[in-house]
């Protein structure tokens, strides 16, 4: 009896990962190489960590297929990259990738989780539950704070929903997505908002500007 189960399990597993699946690599990196804004303005980035969840590919006919419903912690100090090895059903043609920047609200209320969602990664608020969707820390001479430091911890899943959806065109078989930090920093008012560590309208606005700073590259 038990043997039969194993056999069924084997069939099930092989159908999941065997024939008909094609590997797809999604790479996330960050850059300021388009302009020299960060250098010009003496902006130093010391920490850049964020969550990417629910990655989908969009087909021509507006249908979509999930290639992952997980959340991934992307820890990208400047010019580093995170590579996600995923897979998709063969024979589909797709033109865009859609993903969530942050963690969805269901996951936020799902209790204790492990892996990338382990609160040990410092991406979880303990005084007011919820994941930090995006974290950017560093310094700018414009910040009137101690050591000119800025701290942006963007999150919130109730009242103010900070996670946002990003859609980008697919340019290559392997998808490469870059977060342009010069674009992010250009929109920040370092004088007035150097510390954001709880959900707010400003946090939500900043999240939206971060979402617009992702681009696909070849």
């Amino acid at each position: 009896m038990l043997k039969n189960y194993f056999f069924l399990l084997f069939i099930f597993c092989s159908s999941q990962h065997g024939i008909g699946q094609k590997n797809i690599v999604v790479t996330f990196s960050s850059s300021d190489s388009n302009t020299t804004l960060l250098k010009q303005k003496n902006i130093e980035i010391t920490k850049l960590i964020y969550y990417i969840s629910n990655i989908e590919l969009l087909q021509e006919d507006n249908k979509s297929v999930y290639i992952s419903k997980q959340s991934y912690l992307i820890d990208n100090a400047i010019n580093e990259e995170t590579v996600l090895g995923l897979s998709v059903q063969e024979g589909l043609s797709y033109s865009h990738i859609r993903f969530q920047l942050g963690v969805d609200s269901l996951t936020n209320v799902g209790g204790a989780l492990g892996g990338d969602l382990d609160p040990i990664h410092g991406m979880y608020w303990t005084w007011q539950n919820g994941y930090i969707n995006f974290k950017l820390e560093g310094s700018s001479p414009l910040c009137p704070s101690r050591n000119h430091k800025f701290t942006y911890h963007l999150g919130g899943y109730q009242g103010i929903h900070s996670s946002i959806t990003v859609v980008l065109p697919i340019l290559n078989d392997d998808i490469h997505i870059v977060l342009y930090l010069d674009q992010v920093c250009k929109k920040i008012n370092f004088v007035e908002n150097h510390s954001i560590m709880s959900p707010s309208i400003i946090s939500k606005m900043m999240m939206e500007s971060v979402g617009k700073s992702f681009k696909s590259v070849l």
């Binding site: 936020n108 209320v109 799902g110 209790g111 204790a112 609160p119 040990i120 410092g122 979880y124 303990t126 005084w127 007011q128 539950n129 919820g130």
Partner: peptide
Amino acid sequence: GAINHLDMQALAPINDVNEMGESTV
């Protein structure tokens, strides 16, 4: 009501400087 799930409750006192003053790590 800041804590949304029983599982996550303990992290609040553990990390609060006025309570256990520790960190999750």
